[in-house]
């Protein structure tokens, strides 16, 4: 490989994971969790990870976020090695985890506050975003006044307003009921297609992954290995009609079947 193509590869991919390997040690036993995971999230693309539950996807996020150091392998951000370093990514956790003693607005500006950015500009921008998320009148309300879907939207805005470029979404809709969930997916799709932030999302829902992503990584059950990379062929902007597209249904069936195989590897019926 010559240096020129190498440079190109690094500039076009915002986040790269190179052969990350991790095992937890428990009572002198080694439990492998991540097995040589390699994946790439190109600049401004939406990439999803699908895998059976408990396959170590959340651990992967901890590795990317610098909370856990991999035994081997590297995390690269625009080609720069950031393995084990914190503060490089914007994390949207599984449950909203808004700070109950902060108003919704103050929650959303938290990441910028931590980064030491001017708070006034952050508040103005946050106010504008709250309006777009239909939360304008809840800016000064404490999070417990918000419904589950609203809290998740606020949590997502907190991630979106963070100064870090790459967003990590950890099953962001899993705690919501089906109706709110599809509503939120459409909302996220709209927001994302306008902003084109670099996103890596973990999900259990094949439909959600197909609807939102540019490419999907299929993970095996524990220890997590990358089984496949699926490039999602559908053009953007996407609408709900996509759900009835025969190609969409075929892909969905295909991925679901592969996931089922993985699930039953661990827990035979």
């Amino acid at each position: 490989m010559n240096s020129n193509t190498n440079l190109q590869a690094t500039t076009s991919s915002a986040l790269e994971i190179e052969a990350a390997h991790l095992a937890f040690r428990e009572r002198r036993q080694s439990l492998p969790v991540l097995n040589q995971i390699s994946l790439t999230v190109p600049n401004g693309k939406f990439v999803s990870i699908i895998g059976p539950s408990g396959c170590g996807k959340s651990t992967l996020f901890h590795v990317i976020g610098g909370l856990v150091k991999p035994d081997s392998g590297k995390i690269l951000l625009h080609g720069k090695d950031v393995t084990g370093e914190r503060g490089h990514i914007s994390y949207v956790p599984q449950k909203p985890a808004l700070f109950p003693w902060r108003s919704t607005l103050d929650n959303i500006t938290l990441a910028r506050e931590i980064a030491g950015m001017p708070i006034k500009a952050a508040r103005e921008e946050a106010q504008a975003w709250l309006g777009r998320a239909g939360l304008a009148e809840f800016a000064q309300a404490y999070p417990h006044k918000l419904s589950g879907g609203m809290q998740q939207r606020a949590s997502f805005l907190r991630g979106l307003l963070a100064p870090q470029e790459v967003l990590l979404l950890d099953e962001p809709f899993s705690a919501l009921d089906a109706l709110t969930r599809s509503d939120m997916q459409r909302w996220l799709l709209d927001i994302w297609e306008e902003n084109q932030r670099t996103v890596l999302m973990i999900t259990h829902s094949v439909e959600e992954a197909l609807m939102l992503s540019d490419s999907i990584y299929l993970f095996s059950s524990r220890p997590a290995t990358v089984l496949h990379r699926i490039d999602v062929p559908f053009t953007r902007p996407r609408t709900e009609q996509l759900l009835d597209d025969p190609r969409f249904l075929e892909l969905k069936r295909d991925i679901t079947a592969q996931m089922r195989v993985q699930m039953h590897k661990n827990q035979p019926l």
Binding site: G65, R86, G87, H88, Y91, A97, L168
Partner: peptide, 14 residues
């Protein structure tokens, strides 16, 4: 202290 909140703060580089 809530672990998810703690994880969030740490990942944000607090």
């Amino acid at each position: 202290t809530d672990h998810v909140m703690l994880d969030y703060m740490r990942m944000a580089g607090a």
